[in-house]
Design a protein around this nucleic acid. Structure first.
Lengths: 204, 204, 204, 204
DNA sequence: CATGAATGAGAGTTCATTCAT
DNA sequence: GATGAATGAACTCTCATTCAT
């Protein structure tokens, strides 16, 4: 079914990761057992061990897959000819959508993972993601300042601040639940800090 | 050991919760088993089941215990004769200390709990805590505005914003790690949003 | 079934060891799994783990049980009023019986155990048994020399030599197989080294 | 790599056996899995099954290889012009070296094998080896008696006795451990039984 | 002949939960 | 009420063995 032809089974590996992703989305991280993944994939118990050692390893690979796409999208949109304010606003609206979605997201599983697994295992995938996002946002704000759309003295600080607010929203969405209005208010707060007023109607 | 009066179970209950708290601080939430608690308490396996059904229930009771004290402290400090800015600043420095502490805190366990257990079980302890904190902070900011120390149009919005930043910092402290400087910057950011500049030296 | 009455379950422990002994006699050491013992005992999977951690531990306890009786029998027989030659001869005939038995003996399992388990685990049960046997035999030979029945310059060396021969016979019985005649010849050899001739008829 | 002629399988067979030997020396018998051998040989899992069915079969072939060389060496040394006492003494010193070596020997694996595998499988390699050794030693002792160096009535019995002592030492070396002095004493014991005194200095 | 991915039986181990005392 | 021995379901992980290529 998977062929072997020298390329090992990159295909099957990918298939397992994609299937495992669904399982993680459904059940979070910790409750997922190797057995769950085996069953979801429709492969044999031992077969899975041919590719991965444990759920932690699988999960980290899933996250890697996931993150590669993520900030590329954001990063790419910067190059388009739009004002920084437009881009940032677009980005925040995208984040809002994700925040309110709650299903079909790895978010829950990711947090679980980072609370459960030994610090050693954690690697720094999450930190790298965070730092990378900060860097991109810093660039964006810098552009906005040059273009005259943003007012900001410390771009990096501002970028980091925005990320912390987003993190706060993300975790709150998972734990205490948040409403669309709450997110909107935070987005306006952020935009206002950059000297941009946002009208009622523009927040999807 | 526990007498035979009606209050005996109350005492033992409390004893179990206090002992369990230590266990949760040590090991987080999920890794804690009924066995762990039984052993820490030095009681019998079956005995624990007379009081609690599972670790989730125990943990929720521990959180209830915990939260009763927490915002009272903050709430009380408002009544003292100090400027709102002083009080807020004090509060934020307190939060900073806790953020950087990482041990001896239930924080990790709380997050774990909210990610692992079924939504049904979660109750809304965390939400109530959050809302209560927002309310208190709103009052404080209101006071500051009246006193002329703070500049702020939407006190409730600002209060909520501050809480989201703190949440963001808290979760980041647990997952990607944060430094003292990063927290300082965020505190200055918050104070500045309220129109208060903070000098280098004042952030312990 | 086993009562608890404060004495833990010494009874059950003993029951398990005795049942396990039979299993080891049947299957040797390595092939025996915790499951085998569980089934032989008619107890639950987890139940066994309440008493023992693994087959090695169980086996060592079985050996301890076994050895306590063993050299007491020999040791006791020395005090009786019989010549040293008689006692030694009796002992050797006893050994012969055991050598030829092959079933109902732990011998095979013991060797397996000492070859398989990590040196750490081995403890020195076997060595202690060997040394203790040497000591007793040395005393016996010493008595024989005093009584004038044995001719021997180095009692300890002779004692050790006899033990090596017995070990050689034991292992050969297990591996290449030995006949009654072969054992008889060795017994005569030993007795002759001590200056005692043994007639054809006296070897059961 | 192995050509395609009929002799290819012979070569590969030999290669596997030689590689497997090293594995057995390292890990004993039972712990060795087909997987271990496959990995050590750098061949495919299925490939090994084309040549051998299981580890027992492989091990028996390894032993066959081993034994062919062994007693030839001893046997050959008899033909040289040296007294029987010299040859025997040389042989015993050689044995001593091997006894104390403990590594780089198949000894451990051999015993393990004979304790673990079904009697059916054992074949009689070990017995043949033993008998062959006895025969050679009998001849040697016979020579010694003719030459006048040895005093011995029953050469075959004596030969067998020596072998049992050696077996006892061998197994003891593996299980309880023996010192150089202990072996020396046994060697002197043997030589003395043949009427030959050995000086302190001659036992390397 | 050779390969190595895939299978699946089975061993070890842990705990939530029960229940006779 | 309290005890803790006993249960058994569930999970992890390893290999001998097969089979399509």
């Amino acid at each position: 079914m998977w062929g072997s032809m020298g390329e090992k089974s990159v295909q099957k590996r990918k298939y397992i990761l994609e299937t495992a992703r669904k399982v993680f989305v459904d059940k979070g991280f910790k409750k997922v057992t190797m057995k769950d993944i085996v069953e979801a994939c429709g492969i044999s118990r031992g077969g899975l061990y041919l590719y991965f050692d444990d759920t932690s390893q699988i999960f980290m690979e899933v996250m890697k897959m996931e993150s590669q796409e993520a900030d590329d999208v954001f990063s790419d949109s910067i190059t388009e000819d739009a004002t920084a304010a437009d881009i940032l606003f677009l980005f925040l609206r995208e984040q809002k959508k994700e925040l309110l979605r709650r299903n079909d997201t790895l978010t829950q599983a990711i947090y679980e993972f980072y609370f459960q697994s030994e610090p050693v295992k954690k690697g720094n995938v999450l930190k790298r993601q965070f730092d990378s996002a900060v860097k991109i946002m810093e660039r964006l704000i810098g552009m906005g300042v040059e273009q005259g759309g943003f007012a900001c003295e410390d771009c990096r600080g501002m970028a980091r601040h925005i990320m912390f607010v987003l993190e706060g929203l993300k975790i709150s969405a998972q734990t205490i639940g948040i409403t669309s209005e709450v997110v909107d208010r935070e987005i306006r707060f952020i935009m206002k800090s950059l000297g941009v007023e946002v009208g009622e109607e523009s927040l999807g």
